[in-house]
């Protein structure tokens, strides 16, 4: 059976904290809010940290730590973006993106076992696939949420069209984040060999 060392637990806990900081990174770095159609959309480093959690902790611990992050938010600790908390955040139309972090973490932990993470190409593959998977889940969930419990009738296509500007933003971001991830992994070499 899988046994957890104390180190596994503390490192996974640290990733919960990093997710909280990543969600609200614009508190410290207000320049990271980028204008899309006249509105300043605050950038979030959450997907980035979710991917890193998979890369550094491995898929098992990554999934557990992302679950812990969601659970912490659901019980009311303000860990989500804009310091939101509570079960309703998951039921809001953007809740699917939060749920997708668990899968992203698993996915990047899984891909790490297949690809060498020390070159830019495979890191880009990982960040790009994760972004796309996150949108697949997020937008489908948004469509579901709007039609089933928020009483807003929106077609599936309309849901996608409204999210396309964000998707483009996040794909560009994924490219940049891949290079940042590479720099992090090489500047902090002892992180490279996560436990599993």
């Amino acid at each position: 059976m899988f046994t957890f060392t104390a180190k596994d637990l503390t490192f996974s806990a640290i990733f919960i904290v990093l997710m909280t900081i990543g969600a609200n990174i614009t508190f410290w770095l207000p320049f990271l809010a980028i204008p899309i159609g006249g509105v300043n959309v605050p950038l979030s480093l959450q997907p980035f940290f979710a991917i890193l959690s998979g890369l550094l902790l491995g898929r098992r611990l990554g999934v557990l730590s992302m679950t812990g992050y969601l659970a912490l938010g659901v019980i009311g600790v303000p860990v989500f973006s804009q310091l939101q908390a509570g079960p309703f955040v998951l039921f809001n139309y953007t809740g699917g993106f939060l749920l997708s972090f668990v899968l992203i973490s698993f996915l990047s932990g899984f891909l790490k076992e297949k690809l060498p993470v020390t070159n830019l190409k495979s890191l880009t593959t990982i960040t790009m696939t994760s972004t796309i998977v996150s949108y697949l889940i997020g937008v489908s969930y948004m469509y579901l949420a709007m039609n089933v419990w928020l009483n807003l009738n929106v077609s599936y296509a309309a849901a996608w069209i409204s999210m396309i500007p964000f998707l483009i933003k996040d794909l560009v971001l994924a490219l940049l984040l891949a290079s940042i991830a590479l720099r992090l992994l090489t500047q902090l070499p002892h992180l490279k060999n996560g436990r599993r």
Binding site: F11, L29, L43, L45, L173, R183, L188
Partner: peptide
């Protein structure tokens, strides 16, 4: 601007992981 995140993240990761390591010990 996004590249400027690196000088923030590297020390943050170092300090966070150091704390995790110490707590585990």
């Amino acid at each position: 601007r996004i590249q400027a995140v690196v000088p923030l993240l590297v020390p943050l990761f170092v300090s966070a992981f150091k704390r995790a390591e110490e707590l585990a010990m």
